[in-house]
Design a protein around this nucleic acid. Structure first.
Length: 416
RNA sequence: GCCCGGAUGGGGUAGAGGUUAUCCUCUGGGACUGUGGAUCCCAGGAGCCGGGUUCGAAUCCCGGUCCGGGCCCCA
């Protein structure tokens, strides 16, 4: 019986991997240009890391298990909590701010559908140590530049959960969390019902319902301020920076985020063409470190839904140039020549099927080789290799140095 | 966890309760041991799994698995 892939997982063939790597390279390049450096955390962690403050929704959707020592573990469902744990464990005395980025697979036990898999990849950054509007500005700009560079058709929404939390300051934490959850779901009916159930004062309910409707240009901030009495200076300054950087956005005070740990500015980006799963980026500022035994350090970050972005990104990687070294009864010589070419940065393929020259050239054609170098008795005797341009069909006789120069000048090097 | 629709060689498909399951593509070899893309020949390879109905099931029924879409949820 054939063994199938587990549900919600995927295999990636070379063409797709090249696309994925090209997109990943753009993300890395831009993050690194902002001074962010890569980190990695374990694929599994103690279950507790994710249950402390990630919200109740997360628990049912995790790949959780007991190891042979009876420990409760879970495959990471996201990376913010692991990164903060790493920070608390290893980096709490490093000079702040810290700029980290990651690219890693995550796991969630959910019903797969378009743009949603049980194993998926996230690219994200965390800027640890600052609560300034400048931290929000940097992180949002970084996310924006990546999506822009990838030529995505997206819409960026920015909000601030501080306003909602301010309104809900006298409501019990558990009840407030449910309110936030309903707002995140955009379930207004459910929200009204819940507000009635918890006997929220009339003016509070009205303020919440009006606030989450506020969406548009930055002028809605003033309305929000009047509505909540919350100081929106942070948001105003953030908008000033973003405007000056040419970052386009919509202020949306109905963003609540599914995770319970966000405390300040929050943002999301949506794209077309993904069906129900249209969110490609989510982030904001949060305070998590104190929950994992560290100091109370403010942080800001975001995660990009890598697989969703791959699905809609039209970027195509440059094709790698391949040279086939074909031989006529001189396999050994072909191996040696190919080896030399490779040392000079050329991708060279030799026959390993013991095929005829004809078949070797046919294979060169199949793999889209740009050139075929032929090596046989004649070439060894004359000291000149035959090079065939597979597109034109023409061939030349060249000594090794000129061959190298000829190939190099016609080959597009793959940027990495 | 729920709802809808699917599943036939590696990929794309045809058929439909009854001999050896159709075609295209593909893969390996050959015609053709110093020159690829064309053509021809040979070979290879399939009805998701399990149960039921039936003399007989790839086909009908049930359950499961996986895929696509949606709900829920979304970190």
């Amino acid at each position: 019986m054939k063994i199938e892939r587990p549900r919600g997982t995927r295999d990636f063939l070379p063409d797709e991997m090249e696309r994925r790597r090209a997109i990943e390279a753009v993300m890395r390049r831009i993050a690194e240009s902002y001074g962010y450096r890569e980190i990695a955390t374990p694929t599994f962690e103690h279950l507790e890391l994710f249950t402390i403050k990630s919200g109740e929704g997360i628990i049912e959707e995790m790949y959780a298990f007991k190891d042979k020592g009876g420990r409760d573990l879970a495959l990471r469902p996201e990376l913010t909590a692991p990164v903060v744990r790493l920070f608390v464990n290893e980096c709490s005395v490093m000079p702040k701010p810290l700029r980290f980025y990651y690219f890693a697979n995550c796991f969630r036990y959910e019903r797969p559908q378009k743009g949603r898999y049980r194993e998926f990849w996230q690219f994200g950054v965390e800027l640890i140590g600052s609560s300034s509007y400048l931290a929000d500005a940097e992180v949002i700009t970084l996310a924006y530049r990546i999506m822009e560079e990838l030529k995505l058709d997206f819409e960026l929404h920015i909000g601030h959960v501080g306003l909602l939390r301010h309104l809900l300051r006298d409501v019990e934490e558990e009840k407030a969390a449910i309110v936030m959850r309903l707002i995140d779901k955009k379930d207004v009916e459910g929200l009204i019902k819940h507000l009635e159930e918890i006997k929220a004062p009339q003016d509070l309910s009205e303020a919440i319902l009006s606030l989450i409707e506020l969406s548009g240009g930055r002028d809605v901030l003033k309305d929000a301020s009047e509505l909540t009495g919350f100081d929106i200076g942070h948001m105003e300054k953030l908008c000033d920076v973003l405007d000056s950087m040419g970052v386009e956005y919509t202020i949306d005070l109905g963003i609540a985020r599914g995770l319970d740990y966000y405390t300040g500015v929050v943002f999301e980006a949506y794209a077309e063409g993904l069906g129900a799963q249209n969110q490609i980026c989510g982030g904001g500022s949060y305070r998590l470190a104190h929950l994992f035994g560290g100091e109370d350090v403010p942080s800001t970050g975001f995660a990009l839904g890598f697989d969703r972005i791959v699905e809609i990104c039209k970027l195509t990687p440059e094709e790698k140039t391949v040279v086939v070294v074909a031989n006529v009864g001189l396999e050994n010589e072909a191996f040696k020549l190919a080896d030399l070419l490779r040392r000079h940065g050329i991708c060279a393929i030799t026959d390993v099927m013991e095929r005829s020259l004809k078949r070797q050239l046919s294979f060169a054609n199949d793999v889209n080789a740009r050139f075929a170098v032929i090596i046989g008795k004649k070439e060894i005797e004359s000291g000149r290799y035959t090079v065939k341009d597979m597109a034109s069909g023409e061939s030349l006789q060249l000594e090794f140095d000129s061959l190298l120069e000829y190939l190099s000048s016609n080959i597009k090097y793959k940027k990495s």
